[in-house]
Design a protein around this nucleic acid. Sequence first.
DNA 1: GCAATATTCTCACATTAAGAGAATATAATC
DNA 2: GATTATATTCTCTTAATGTGAGAATATTGC
Lengths: 253, 253
Amino acid sequence: MTSLSKMLNVLNMFGPDSLLLDVDSIADGMELSRATAYRYVKELCESGLLSRVDGQYTLGPRIIELDWMMRRYDPLLSNGREIISELCKTTGLNVYISVFYDGRIINTYINSPDTEAGFSFGRGQPLPLFKGAQSKVLVSYQKGRKLKKLFHEAIENNAEYDFTWKSFSQITRSIRQNGYCITHDELNSGLTGIAAPIIRPDTDDILGSIAAVGGTSSFQLLRHEAVIELVKSAANRIAAKIVSSDSDKSPAA
Amino acid sequence: MTSLSKMLNVLNMFGPDSLLLDVDSIADGMELSRATAYRYVKELCESGLLSRVDGQYTLGPRIIELDWMMRRYDPLLSNGREIISELCKTTGLNVYISVFYDGRIINTYINSPDTEAGFSFGRGQPLPLFKGAQSKVLVSYQKGRKLKKLFHEAIENNAEYDFTWKSFSQITRSIRQNGYCITHDELNSGLTGIAAPIIRPDTDDILGSIAAVGGTSSFQLLRHEAVIELVKSAANRIAAKIVSSDSDKSPAA
DNA sequence: GCAATATTCTCACATTAAGAGAATATAATC
DNA sequence: GATTATATTCTCTTAATGTGAGAATATTGC
């Protein structure tokens, strides 16, 4: 293990129960000498990833800043915000944007009908790989080899799931054919989700998924087919907007 | 310069105009050999701070996850959300939470009367050190020695500002005496902001600031004194809630 | 399946991280 | 504002390990 990875591993010590650590506990936890722990922590502080708060250390402002940059220049968000908000208002449902990122499914945006809810707990929330409409759509639209690889590496031997390649590829194929996925009670009991892929029409790449999620009561008032069409349409409009904003920047491409 | 800092500096290459870089440009930009650039990038990817996207590299999911953790366990946000939302609704103004972090002022939360706005561009936005109501409050409430140090290090010789220690300390003193700060057109022309400090009553530490911000038109409908009282009261209630939630966890302290 | 490109490996060498404890800076207390 | 306690950096030597160049190997795109 190199000093580089050891230093980066210091970040792992910061968790829900331990957002504030002193150098001694870092040194102990990582099995580093005092001096080395100080060296690492110093480097991390200089880069802004950590920050010193009266004798202790905590996650630093650089993280907030980097996330800001990611949000700001995420084409999915910059092009999607209005469309998402519209979908949220017309349906009264929570709208989620999720992406497939480094083999994981992660939520990058939530728009809730009630202003404050969801804000802070939304972005960043990790989702299971193949549970819930968002995840299923994102996985199902991975291209041939990637999908197979994903299945063998993360689903086949995962106790959470009980699929053969055959049953799995059948499900994913049907999701691709439908162009959307609807689930009930998979992620949270009592909730129904409808998700559609956001696909670049020019390259056919999947950029993310958009989902409308609500409780059974919200859904009783709605015709499912109507919601499905709204979600699909939102997805397509976001994709189209992304493509056109791209070609604005580099007309040659 | 150590290899540790060189590796962390790779993160600096990712900016607004360059969120997607290939290893060659990283190697060139940081004056690293190909091999070393690959080594660094590999470490950063393994830690999740970077991510590989078809041959290029970009900021990784770990950043989103870490920011999520920071938001989730930030007492200012977890205790403040409802109070902030209430202030936003009753005044119809944008409400900001800002903190003083590593010598910088940074925005950590925005609640906008219109649902979608502000979300993405809010948290993480850096603010000038002594412009705008938020910043002025946060700086003014720094304790004696810190305030003086801050002035000499970051304000005295800063072309942006034209203060002597005398004029500076007069302004900050008056803000402390008032218990709030109101500014017009300082950060954005046409906007007025009213900010109050969020101070722990038990330790007297300043945790952050809360501000209500709006355009001239919004403010014409409002009695300034009434808004000031609402902002101050919100600040105090958040602080009280933080203290009581702390003592819930560790009754001894 | 093949070619092109991206990435990791190998190895010799020199740089430089590491540890222990002293020296210094910083913060808390009265 | 001085004094003590604690946190942090420095010094120095040794051994570990990061480095660069190019070969070997994965990956990806067609």
